[in-house]
Design a protein around this nucleic acid. Sequence first.
DNA 1: GGAACTACGT
Length: 931
Amino acid sequence: MEKLAIPCQTNPPISVPASIIKARPLKFSSKPTKTSIFFTQKLTTKFNDDHLSYLCSNGLLREAITAIDSMSKRGSKLSTNTYINLLQTCIDADFIELGRELHVRMSLVDQVNPFVETKLISMYAKCGFLKDARKVFDGMQERNLYTWSAMIGAYSREQRWKEVVELFFLMMGEGLLPDAFLFPKILQACGNCEDLETVKLIHSVVIRCGLSFCMRVSNSILTAFVKCRKLSLARKFFGNMDERDGVSWNAIIAGYCQKGNGDEARRLLDAMSDQGFKPGLVTYNIMIACYSQLGNCNLVIELKKKMESMGIAADVYTWTSMISGFAQSSRISQALDFFNDMILAGVEPNAITIVSATSACASLKSLQKGLEIHCFAIKMGIAREVLVGNSLIDMYSKCEKLEAARHVFDTILEKDIYTWNSMIGGYCQAGYCGKAYELFMRLRESNVMPNVVTWNVMISGCIQNGDEDQAMNLFQIMEKDGEVRRNTASWNSLIAGYHQLGEKNKALAIFRQMQSLNFSPNSVTILSILPVCANVMAERKIKEIHGCVLRRNLESELPVANSLIDTYAKSGNIKYSRTIFDGMSSKDIITWNSIIAGYILHGCSDAAFHLFGQMKKFGIRPNRGTLASIIHAYGIAGMVDKGRHVFSSITEEHQILPTLDHYLAMVELYGRSGRLTDAMEFIEDMPIEPDVSIWTSLLTACRFHGNLHLAVQAAERLQELEPDNHVIYRLLIQAYALYGKSELALKVRKLGKESTMNKCTAQCWVEVRNKVQLFVSGDQSKLDVLNTWLKSIEGKVKKFNYHNQLSIDEEQKEEKIGGFHCEKFAFAFGLISSSHTPKSIKIVKNLRICGDCHQMAKYISAAHECEIYLSDSKCLHHFKKGHCSCGDYCCGESSLVEQVFHDLRSYVVSGNHFLDSCPIVCVAHYNCARH
DNA sequence: GGAACTACGT
């Protein structure tokens, strides 16, 4: 800009742009007339205005202030207009400091009036100082519509909807009503905080003040009803509208889309065209967003083609909603394909596109694609923006690239709490608890306040990494030190953490405490606590949680219903699983897998096959888990060829790479049917290294079918894999001893003695009529009654359908109580501890049930018409009418995994049994239970 | 006389 120095008598020489000089009238009459005085004043004002705004627009704030001060010293008062223009300059250029100076000077010369005050409100608000804006507002003598509009507009921009609605009521209290501009703002606020009552009130006010004809206002009412999720009201309002425009149609269509009712939205779209309204870009974008979220690829493509045929090009919103919608509906690779298509179509992504695409990469853990998008963000110059940066941190964390995540973290210019939480969460997930803690401490020193999420992330990080004390400590101090209120997620972090640590009892205690403090469990809580209760003796607790699910209307959430199916099945109640399954209006692959696995657990392979067929009929594609289960089911049914056929279909038909669970199911399939050589050959041909479960499965099969030669091989391989496992030692010794290799047996025994492993004590728990009794091996006190009874039936059991197994279980003697295994006492206690034979007995055993006891359970279930549910360390046995759901295959030596034992002992030791209403009766008191 | 600031979609 060309600058000229012009001499000036009253002011020091200053530079003024040529355009201003040109704009100045050049002629003055020598004698001042009334008009010319007016003109001169006006010119002076204009000159001052231009002069000051010139200084401002060039950033010469100090000079501007000096000029103002020297003007006021000379007694020339700045006009309100000048102040307003200056304040506007401050807004436009974000010169809040100058604005404050002006505010001070205006107050000093007492030149404040509603006009400038309103402008001051705008200025403070737009520069991000809402509190100062409010201070001006509160200090005002009189407020008019403009003032209210400025103040309400300020809260609206900050999305502080509640304050907007509050101000609306205050405004009405002062006898003022919004106009056609302000009503939409307030309605938007009501919609966003779902304040239906206020919307209804405004609706009636609008009718009374005759503003219903205004499209903006009535469209805003319509939108507010939609946002309050009152679609019936919205539809009624829409139907009653005298006039509708495209926006009205879009609003009602958006309402159905938000509810996921794409069909109704589609009908409205057609009706809209029929009534002569052309759907526009926004209409198509709404519809496409809806179908993208539903993951309906075909319809999205169809709609996009249709809009393009109407001459409407997909814009950045169209593509972005497709990308984010598909990412959210788990069709993540499709979402990333759309990102590519968008770039090819030459549409420039915006920050939200980048965020959506990055989060898609995060869920896919696709580092390659994530890096590409990071490059895009860098090229667009938005990689350091907080929103984009946050999603990049998340993506790198999920791809386990913590250093890259940290690099992004360090480069983000203005970190918000999400930035910190993402980084801390990333460290926690990766197990770097120390780094997370370090960052957490740094955050507490920064000017960003940790929020409840930060604390929750830290708690779950600590507990997942095993630092239970630190987790509890954080949980205790968060409210006092952190000034955040615990929420459901805080409790969930602890419950899920304890569940992962296998501390079921502590998880249940936290769950109880949570409820007693009136925190409502949500679906996450339910999903953490249900697996804890998957136990034949916890049915009451499960029903209690089921009740809680129904009260909170959580049964419609698929994962919750799926978990209920799974938990009931694992707890012996497959009928309940089925009832829930049948009652579900929508089912996903997990639903089908849960019920199928449930039936298999109960030995009902036919039901599993039937459901598998039905599932395919419904067009649900089986996944990895389904196929493993079905092979397992063919194993139980002894249908080897069918099982093999399913195995080959994994790769051929379903294009899935078989994993260890499929190989295990195949070994079991061969093993059960006695095709041990096939099993061995299958294991040797496996492209992945067989693990403990594979060899254990083979060993079980060898025991069942009496193949000592292969048993020794399996035991040797097991011993190689887990040299410190004492159970495997014992198996190996027994196998050698029985195979006639006593020298080897002795040698191994010597080695085994040197290892410090302790043998587990056998224990079992029996529940009869909601009372729980513990039997521990080695405790022989006061068991005469049971002993006598057991001896009386021993002979009968032997005659009953005995399967002659290869016995390598000789060492179990030491676990016995008075010559019997503890579960036999459990059977006896269950049967004779009250006057009637119970319909069912439920037992949990820490080790694996032996063949002998298994036999007795079968006998009892037939002779006494009493079903026995026995959950041992490996399997759920359901004895009924002389048969067991495991098909007699799952009994034998004690388990390799002693987890169940550990869990159960902790219940007793801590005195907190999971059935609140079921106190544990100690063994010595068993006689009292009869009365 | 000035000032408030224009509904539906990421």
